[in-house]
Design a protein around this nucleic acid. Structure first.
Length: 592
RNA sequence: UGCCUGGUGGUGUAAUGGUAGCACAGCAGAUUCUGACUCUGCUUGUCUAGGUUCGACUCCUAGCCGGGCAGCCA
């Protein structure tokens, strides 16, 4: 349950929201911190959500609190069970081994119960006890309670049923720089409002015929205070609540009260909700609730370069078949990230490393790549694999002879383990590790030149064999076995060391090489994102692998030396027919 | 011309009245049986103008520039 990664060993993050939390604790405004992560189940989670998850769970974790996972499902037209399942799985994966103990789930099937707070009737829904059957919280589980609160608002003269159409409502709202006008239904008697609202619930009116509105101020400078809608009529079944509702609450109304019902202390969201905060507070304050009220705080969402993080654009990529699905390894979704082989710890390190501010920043994706490499460099087992092979014959090794070479699994370990790789007469090397006419400063193999075969010995190229078209068919070399580890010339230096595999004793696999999906730093700013799709974002090759890779397991992470980090594709790799994904290349100064 | 919000190197982020620091990126070098990792060095910054102060990224005033807001979406 403890995180052994370097990121966890470092100092706890600090930002303006954590400062507020710390002050609330120090000044006893709160005794226990409860945050929440409230996605709408209408799409898959992406790395932008990962920042919010790590912020909310991180704050809970650092303060001995919990973070509720809540489906913000108040719009039945857009939401699906598929999404609640993927969201639940993605959150579990991201926090696994780091904040599992902070995950707030509710008792399965439970809705808010009656409690007494400060001597007054109240409602509350807390998290499930350990071991108890549980599921995420759902805003739709609060519909009954939300309805009761709405009745209270009506009784207090703070809400009314409005008969204006959607278009009329827009017109009456005015513009940001000019006040709106009161709805003609604004001063409807309480009894009539109560009756109409009950009949809205009963399904007596068609979609859009009426709405329930807060009675605030049509001249408010903040447009969200101009009698915002609380409920709309929707004759639609709900994926979680079933078919018993004909009216559904809107976000602004449902969210603050969901927070209250769960005893949330700090409701953390992104910047676009700043304008809604006065409404968040208005609803809670005007209900005269007995317990301490939650407070909303806003931060800037994560916007990485060379990708998009908007559900609408992500949905387009999936729908238009530009990627294979939500979990395509090129997608910035959490499921795509996972399938790509990126460790959850690397994603966490990245999203917490960028910090939390109110500045709308563009984060260089290189920060993510760095976090991935840092994590994988420390943990991935080194292996040899050749992506684009060219044959090389070691003329002084007899056919059938096998020279066993000791190879280090991970030089980053204090006591690295070893394995054996077979060297045979015929080996395969990377085609661009040989150059007939080498560019300046090229220190790999060339005609008449020398290079070391990693973990084996130094070889010298004696002959380049070509076919009739001039294509290279094989390289003939001599191996200096005295330069093997332990040999009398083991210390001999040559400029280059290259990777290789035996041509006769090797495994084979499909390897998928990924590159960034977009060619421009800010694809979201383009008029049409299809025009800046990187045509080379996926290249598939059939690679030759050292024999041990035939036994690779799904959860293992490898560094194919000098190439990058790889792991098995969890969806399409099959026993006997392995498929590897390249998670990321190694940093490459030479390529620049 | 309404309301909200924000401006620190190329990017992100610290410094909350006391030496502008860190990470990434870039460049140069060292090291290397991975052109990886590691190590060293370097380039580049407080939006502007006033004011307060011994001293201002920080406080005040006025500007400038950017982002968001008028869904019966969240």
């Amino acid at each position: 349950m403890t995180d052994q990664s370097p990121a966890a060993a470092g100092p706890a993050p600090s930002d303006f929201i954590r400062d507020i939390v710390a002050a609330d604790l120090a000044e006893k405004r709160q005794s226990r911190i409860v945050t929440r992560f409230p996605p709408e189940p209408n799409g898959y989670l992406h790395i932008g959500h990962a920042k919010s998850i790590c912020l909310n769970f991180g704050i809970a974790r650092e303060n001995g609190g919990i973070c509720n996972l809540r489906m913000d499902d108040t719009n039945p037209a857009k939401e699906e069970v598929e999404y609640v399942d993927s969201i639940t799985a993605d959150v579990a994966w991201l926090i696994s081994g780091w904040a599992d103990h902070c995950l707030g789930l509710k008792p399965k099937g439970r809705t808010p119960g009656s409690v007494v707070s400060e001597g007054r009737a109240d409602s509350y829904l807390g998290p499930a006890a350990p071991g108890e059957p549980s599921e995420p919280f759902f805003a739709s589980d609060y519909f009954e309670q939300l309805y009761a609160y709405a009745v209270t608002l009506i009784e207090k003269g703070k809400a009314y049923v409005c008969d204006l159409s959607a278009e009329e409502t827009d017109a009456y709202r005015g513009a940001p720089d000019q006040p709106g006008r009161d709805s003609p239904w604004r001063n409807r008697p309480v009894s009539e409002n109560l009756d109409l609202f009950a009949r809205m619930r009963a399904g007596e009116f068609p979609d859009g015929a009426r709405s329930l509105r807060a009675r605030i101020d049509m001249a408010a400078p903040n447009v969200w205070l101009r009698d915002p809608l609380l409920y709309r009529i929707r004759h639609t079944a709900h994926h979680h609540a079933g078919d018993k509702w004909r009216i559904y609450p809107l976000y602004d109304y449902a969210h603050c009260l969901s927070d209250y019902l769960e005893g949330i202390t700090h409701s953390i969201c992104t910047l676009e909700f700043v304008d809604h905060r006065p409404l968040y507070d208005w609803i809670l304050e005007n209900l005269g609730l007995p317990r301490a009220l939650p407070h909303q705080y806003e931060f800037a969402k994560l916007m990485p370069t060379y990708t998009v993080v908007s559900k609408r654009k992500l949905i387009e990529l999936v729908r238009d078949g530009i990627v294979s699905g939500w979990d395509d390894p090129r997608m910035p979704t959490i499921s795509g990230t996972r399938r790509r082989g990126i460790p959850a710890s690397a994603l966490r390190r990245f999203v917490t490393g960028v910090g939390v501010t109110k500045f709308r920043s563009l984060t260089d994706i290189a920060l993510f790549e760095h976090a991935i490499r840092e994590e994988l460099n420390a943990t991935a087992a080194r292996r040899l694999a050749v992506l684009r092979p060219v044959k090389l014959v070691l003329t002084n090794i007899a056919p059938g002879e096998v020279v066993e070479c000791q190879a280090t699994d991970n030089p980053q370990d204090e006591n690295p383990t070893m394995r054996v790789i077979p060297l045979t007469r015929e080996v395969l090397i990377e085609s661009d590790d040989f150059a007939e006419v080498p560019p300046p400063k090229y220190f790999r193999l060339r005609p008449g030149g020398e290079v070391r075969l990693k973990y084996a010995c130094i070889i010298a190229c004696t002959e380049v064999v070509k076919d009739a078209q001039g294509g290279i068919t094989e390289l003939r070399c001599t191996a200096d076995l005295s330069t093997r580890a332990g040999g009398e010339n083991a210390a001999r230096k040559v400029k280059g060391t290259i990777h290789w595999v035996s041509a006769t004793l090797c495994a084979e696999a499909e390897v998928r090489l990924y590159d960034r999906l977009f060619t421009v730093p800010e694809p979201a700013e383009e008029e049409d994102i299809r025009k800046c799709i990187n045509p080379n974002s996926l290249e598939t090759v059939v690679a030759k692998l050292e024999p041990s890779l035939a036994d690779a397991r799904l959860e293992e992470r490898f560094q194919f030396e000098r190439l990058g980090y790889f792991s098995l594709d969890p969806v399409e790799s099959k026993p006997g027919k392995p498929v590897f994904n390249r998670t990321i290349t190694l940093r490459d100064q030479w390529a620049k």
